[in-house]
Design a protein around this nucleic acid. Sequence first.
DNA 1: AAAAAAC
Length: 529
Amino acid sequence: MQFSELGLGPEVLQAISEVGYTTPTPIQEKAIPWVLQGRDVLGCAQTGTGKTASFTLPMIEILAQGRARARMPRSLILEPTRELAAQVADNFEIYGKYHKLNMALLIGGESFGDQVKKLERGVDVLIATPGRMIDLFERGNILLSDIKILVIDEADRMLDMGFIPDIERIVGLLPKLRQTLFFSATMPPEIRRLADQFLMNPREITVAPPASPAATVTQALAVAYDEDKRRALRHLLRTEDVKNAFIFCNRKKDVGILHQSLSKHGFNAGALHGDMVQSKRTETLEAFKQGSIDLLVCSDVAARGIDIKGVSHVFNFDVPFNAEDYVHRIGRTGRAGLTGRAFTIAAPEDGRLVQAIEKLIGREIPRVPIDGLETPELEFEESGRGRRRPRRKDEGRKDEGRKAEPRSARPSRSRTADRTEVRESATAGTMPEERAARPERTERPERSERPVRARPERTERPVQDRPERPVREDRRSRFPDRGEDRRRRRDEDDDRTPVIGFGDDVPAFILRAARPVRPAALPDSDAEG
DNA sequence: AAAAAAC
């Protein structure tokens, strides 16, 4: 079967062949002719099956006829994350090359102005995340009465993320007479109910998950004490032939920490999670795609659907809480017939999570030891409250350096420790690469390693002693995310903006008064390195 | 246990 047999026009076929594709994937083969006939589709397919092109290609064809009027888009595609929305937009750019389709990408974190302007001009394709979509609708910038095609992508993920009420609301605003394409990787009853509600006499298309990761991705699991995980990761990064890699963490906070740590050790890494400003998210993802960043430390925002060609490795720095997320994460590699390698670093207390994953994928993940590190046993007991976290036997002091010591007050080389130094010397022969990377740090000093003199005096004091700063409850409760975002940024600013001339005791009111003007006057936190 | 998404 060739693309040319599916009923697509010459312009689209030309664009497809320029990208280098000749044969449609199963879902494209089944869906495209049907969509071209104007029928509804219920697609049970994961990303990586060619799902996106299965709706973008016929949509370009259908929308080629007619033109959009101002503020009245002709089609709407709903995506769960901003990155996926952007990826679909890229798809329209590529395959719509020889068509004059107007497109608008409505996602949060970017200015309203451009999006509104585009809507005013009239768009054929609207690609949106639910929040921004509803916002713009409520402001009267979108009229939905001319929508002819609706695509709901990744419906099960929308469910997970609590978007279903939004989706139902949006669909309620659309004309009843329309074509609807509905995609989901899984079909739990709740999703099935939605599909029944939104679709009319759909063709149901189910395609096998993309060559199950077992086939193209070599998996391995390393068990390490929690405090050894970064070291274990670095070891893997240096011993594996890593071209580029996703490195997943379970928490946004840890994405930041790990990113800093890797950078400090001379790795070319970027960070991506949902609390970062959108411009940074876009920029980082683009840099990773282009290869100017080798390692992308990220949260599960990037676990599903992000399609980057030729990623050699996936590292799970944390075992994912959801077994299914494991499959999604490692599916970032081994794509398009290429092989990939996926390593998971598990702490002893992750036994149950590992068990759940192995049950889901139906096999045991081969264990690998890490040279020079003690390999603890996985534990499978209920993790009751107050149960002590398993620790390395040789660990002398408790958690010091991690929490108790303010980051900036640490002398430049101690970090987590003297105790790791001890270990390291014991294993010096087996891990020469640890040593080799050290000089890098003097060439590229990180903020936290600058001489104490250059740092704000206040940071030498324990965090709890910082003057309390007012938080505007009203705004925070309405926009919890933004509130957190701002507070975090302030904290970072506080780390490196000394108030000159007050010594250790800067009066709280000075700090308060200075704060509002400070962020604007500061260089961006990344401008320096 | 987390993450995702609106100014």
